[in-house]
Each structure stands twice: as C-alpha cells, then as structure tokens.
Amino acid sequence: MKEVTHNSSIIGAYAIAIAEALENLGVVAEDIFHTCGLSLPTTTDPLVRIDNQTISRLYAAAVQASGDPGFGLRVGETMRPANLHAMGFALLSSISIRDFAQRLSAFYRVVSQNADIRCEERGNQFLLISTSTKGADTCFETQDAYIALVTNLLRTISGNRFQLRTLELTRPQPEGQAQRYRDYFQCDIGFDRPEIIMVMDVAQVDKRLPGANEELALGHDRTVMEYLQRIDRSDIVNRVRSLISEELPVRALNKDRVAEQLHISTRNLQLKLAARDTSFQEILDSTRRAQALAMMSRSSVSVTEAAFSLGYTEVSNFTRAFKRWTNQSPRQYRQGLGLER
C-alpha cells in the first residue's frame, strides 16, 4: 500500500476487512497476504491506497483458500464505518436514506476512484446507481463487497427496516450462488447489467433515521472534503468527468468551456489529459456511453429524451453513437433486455 497516485484506486483500510473475513473463516490472513506480496494493513488513512490489480490478486487467493465463491459478500458484511474513515461516520449520521445516498454520491471518491455514483428518482422509485469509471478493472468480489457494505449500512441506520425493491448487478450470475444472492439482499436480482442499481421505494427514503445527527454529519463532511481536495488535486480525469456529468443535461460542452471552469488553458487541459493517456473527447464519449446505457435500460426514458439529455441536437446522432458503442440500435438494445418487443 502506498500514498495515493492516479493509479491507486481503493482506500487501504479496505484490506483490513478482507483480512478479518479470512480470519472469521479460519484462514490465516497473514499467509494469504504474504503470498500476494503484502503485509497486513494497519491504518485507515484514506491517503494510503491499494491498487485494483493487487486487490484482484488478493481476492483470488482468498477465494481459493476459503473455498467461498461469494467471499466478496463476506467482506462487505465485515466492513465497518471506520474502514471508510470520516465518510463512514458521516453516513451513519445521515438524516435520511436520501441524505445517505447523496452523501455517498458526493464523497465516494475518498474510498474508491473506481465508480461514479448518482441518485435518480423515477415515479415512486428511488435509484442509487453506480457506474464504473473508465479503466476501472475491478473484480466481481470488489463489486459484491461494495453493494453488501451499502446494504448493511442502510439496514443499520434504518433500524433494520430498509428494504430493496430490486437490485441490478454488473457481474454475471454466479454459478450455484444465485439464490444465496437473492437471500442475502432479500429482493429480485438482475445479473450482467450495465450498471449497479439499487432500487427502493421513494416512500422510505425521506423518513428521519433513528441516529440522525446533522451536526456530526456536517463535521465529518468537512473532514472528508479536506481529503478529497488532496486526492482530487492531481486527478484531472475525475474533475473533467464530473464537470461533464453535471453540465451535459443543461448546455453544450466543449474542451474550451471545461478548461475555463477548471481555470486552466485549453492547451494545458489537453496536455494534462494526454499525460493520463486520454483526451477530452474520450472522457465525453465514455461518460455519454455510461449514461446512455443506463437510460436505455429504463423503459420510462424515451430515445429522444436520452439524446437531448446527453447533449445531442439530433436523435440520429445519438443513434449512430449508440450503435458505435454497442453494435446495436437503442431499440435493439432494449429488446435484448426484454424492455421492447
């Protein structure tokens, strides 16, 4: 584990939960960590990170040693608020489930740079959506641990009254484990989907939680923001992606406008992105692609609505882009998901 760089993706304290989950199964965690070239973690400092490749290697060894293909669920269940540093305690102090979800969306980067999280409300449904960031090569166990952690935190802060309506996972259906996942999350589950989506009733998201404490939550928020400033200072890709996500629905975007908002020249922006092996157009394209797949996975969003929400002036331009991303038209994609005939 090391001081954060743009290649470091996950808070180092995450490995503490992996070690504890191994020990709970009677496996000597130190031996597994040693085989992966790691020492047992000792700090929850959010600036100490562990890269995705190392986490994947560690999980592979843990699954083999434990014989449990659902080991990621155990890790998520083992994780405590302290593993998330100040953000964990801010989440525990949230006023409502909506407040929790918005806080998770705003501050998740302090834990991991692998996903962008957003909240959406559709009719009587409230959605917490996680989209993998470009180049985030996370293993299925990491994804399982994330969703198990969020579910258990929500159950805790709601006095165990939290209930999912449905859950969509990006991982394929695990052989022989599907019922275990349904039992664990207590809802219907869709596998192999483009995003992780937790669907809940709007009626439950605005009820005041038993442990709500505005003063504590705001205090922890300030600590998290201080760390985020240090993490994001050199993370130009996430800063550009965040601006694009915010601005797409309301105005036309180009690299000049984004550079202006970042208070740097357009040339400097291009150079910084090139140093990260990407470009403004690539980030714009990947952001549109992720959002387009999410929108086309919902029957309530029309192709026209999606096109204009993503900044296209013509539906035909959106359709061509969608075919380039998926080799399917939006309608064909929806047919494959069973949303259209």
Rank of each mutant, 00 (worst) to 15 (best):
G76M: 03
D192V: 01
T170P: 00
N327K: 12
R80I: 13
A106F: 05
D99C: 10
S9P: 00
I18N: 03
L339R: 06
V27I: 15
V150G: 02
A321T: 08
A60N: 15
S265D: 09
N213C: 14
I129G: 00
I196C: 02
D116V: 11
A115H: 04
P41W: 02
Q281E: 15
V258M: 05
R276N: 15
V27C: 07
F107N: 09
G211T: 11
G67P: 08
A178Y: 02
L128K: 00
T5M: 04
I264R: 04
R57K: 12
L284A: 07
L293W: 00
Q143G: 11
H6W: 06
G123R: 06
D68F: 06
S96D: 05
A252K: 09
L253S: 05
T133K: 13
I50V: 15
P41A: 10
Y181D: 13
S132I: 06
I55K: 01
E314W: 04
T156F: 04
G123L: 08
Q291I: 11
P330V: 07
F191T: 07
T326L: 03
A86D: 13
N114K: 04
V202E: 09
S93N: 11
A203T: 10
S300W: 05
A321K: 08
E3K: 13
A29W: 03
Q64H: 10
F322T: 05
L167P: 00
Y181G: 04
N254K: 04
L47H: 12
A61R: 13
L218F: 09
F140E: 12
R208P: 01
P330G: 04
N213F: 05
V28T: 10
S132N: 08
V4W: 08
F71V: 10
S329I: 10
F140T: 10
F191L: 08
E121A: 10
S94W: 02
S158G: 03
S329Y: 02
P46E: 08
M225T: 07
G211D: 09
V150R: 01
V315Q: 12
G123D: 07
E168R: 00
T170A: 00
R288E: 05
L40G: 05
G159I: 11
Y227W: 10
I189H: 03
R122D: 08
A148V: 09
R341I: 12
K2W: 06
E247I: 15
A274G: 12
Q163M: 11
R239Y: 02
A101N: 13
T156H: 08
G159N: 05
R109K: 10
E141Y: 06
H6C: 07
P172V: 07
M87T: 09
A274Y: 07
R122H: 06
L253Q: 06
A292M: 05
F107H: 14
A15R: 01
H34G: 02
H34L: 13
A290I: 00
